[in-house]
Design a binder for these strands. Structure first.
Lengths: 251, 251
DNA sequence: AAAAACATATAGACACATCTAACTGAGTAT
DNA sequence: ATACTCAGTTAGATGTGTCTATATGTTTTT
């Protein structure tokens, strides 16, 4: 076990234990093995050796069968992890408007992997959004209105934002469905005009807004297919799929 | 080994192997153990057993010492992972403007933990941003201008956005430093007006924009300290730190 | 064709994180 | 005060992912 710089390079599991201990200590007076096990959803037999390791690392103070307390460095890591958890959860719920349970799960797993710079920049995003909470150009509110109130983002309503409606119309003129462009031409993906499973499938394939995609070949059979290439990938899309990919032709 | 639904619940390591194999296959014709080991930064001896497991799971096709190929389900997972990698990297670089290396590292670790809903919602953010790429109210551009061109976000320049300058001034009037509010009053954190190590420290402590914080007590000694409480935490801040926390009083 | 070079595999070790089952110790109850 | 109960620990197993060192194929060279 090489201790790198200072705190860094703890395993996710150990970080989770510190976080759990921290939360227990805040709420009740002292942390006990049974409670840690309950909150983390593991058996007490798994907690004991973890406490031993954390103790060896100087992150908690405890003697067998006694109460568990965080050392200053243990507390520092716990708070650091918790702050990431908090910020990620809020990013997922407040900005992306995810379901709270998914937001929580994703934040839980990702909190161990966000760099200091990531934390800094994500905070700046919150600071910026907060600077204009209900202002004339509330980006976040409009984003939610667009992508959530009206899930068919092909028809993004900009009522109350006349300049934007105009702007959007200009945009619309240059766009078409991937199924409609000429074979051999390249285009930039603007959005995926699909919902549910189909949207999920296209995203998981890697067809994302902003990528450049080329229609290689159109197979005009009873069930037409569209051979496309993007990044390092080449594959076939069905008609439905190709129609859902909204693009603007390159140059 | 319980195979849950279908593809899900692969370990990050195995997902990484699939991703690596996918990338090799796209570039060269075939994937070999040596190349996989090189790209993943592990020894060949670690790759062999992983290939065995992937083969047992039906995600790759290979026989000992022969070329390695992805099965359709292996390819599906690889692309899914890669799409997450791509989108997270772009979120970190294009939207948050992180250093490419950090963006890459964070994306690499997080790509295994983003739910389908997270992927969907993050994509919608890109779609929305893309709808107004250089429009009258380019949120992203202004965010960058504010938080990056001028890192002292206390003085966010809104040149060219007169309504916003006005708006910002209104905002400014209601704000103060945490060090200046009355003991016993609660306030909402607007931003952290600090850079480098001090900013990092405050964020890691959990003092984030949007949280509610209460100034419990001011210790007016030679080196004054500020006892604050937020969430489940109570701790002491130095004068410098308390001055960096910009808040608006609650009600 | 035999030898050298190289790719890949196996054996054995280690660290982590979990489990079940069995044990220990300390307070509680009758 | 003896036995019960229950928190906590230890022992031993399992699975993953890595390593070093060694063995085994395969290909290339001479």
């Amino acid at each position: 076990m090489e201790i790198s710089k200072d705190n860094l390079s703890l395993t996710p599991a150990l970080e989770d234990y510190l976080e759990t201990i921290y939360l227990i200590i805040q709420e009740k007076k002292i942390a006990r093995v049974k409670e840690i096990a309950r909150l983390r959803g593991v058996r007490m037999a798994s907690v004991s050796p973890a406490m031993r390791r954390l103790s060896d690392l100087g992150l908690i103070a405890y003697s067998q069968r006694e109460f568990i307390d965080l050392t200053p460095s243990g507390e520092e890591i716990a708070r650091r992890t918790l702050a990431r958890h908090d910020l990620l959860t809020r990013f997922f719920t407040e900005i992306l408007q995810m379901n709270p349970q998914n937001a929580e799960n994703d934040a839980c797993a990702m909190e161990h992997h966000l760099s200091d710079e990531g934390m800094d920049k994500l905070t700046r995003l919150f600071e910026f959004v907060q600077l204009y909470p209900k202002g004339i150009d509330n980006f976040i509110e409009r984003f939610h209105h667009c992508s959530l109130v009206n899930p068919e983002i092909g028809r993004c309503l900009n009522h109350g934002y006349p300049e934007l409606e105009k702007y959007q119309h200009e945009q619309e003129s240059g766009r078409s469905k991937l199924s409609e462009i000429e074979s051999g031409s390249r285009a930039c993906v603007l959005r995926i005009n699909a919902r549910g499973k189909m949207r999920e499938k296209l995203l998981n394939i890697g067809i994302l807004p902003g990528i450049n995609i080329e229609l290689l070949h159109r197979n005009a059979t009873a069930e037409p297919t569209y051979e496309v290439t993007f990044g390092a990938t080449t594959l076939l899309l069905s008609l439905d799929e190709a129609e859902a990919v909204i693009v603007t032709l390159n140059k």
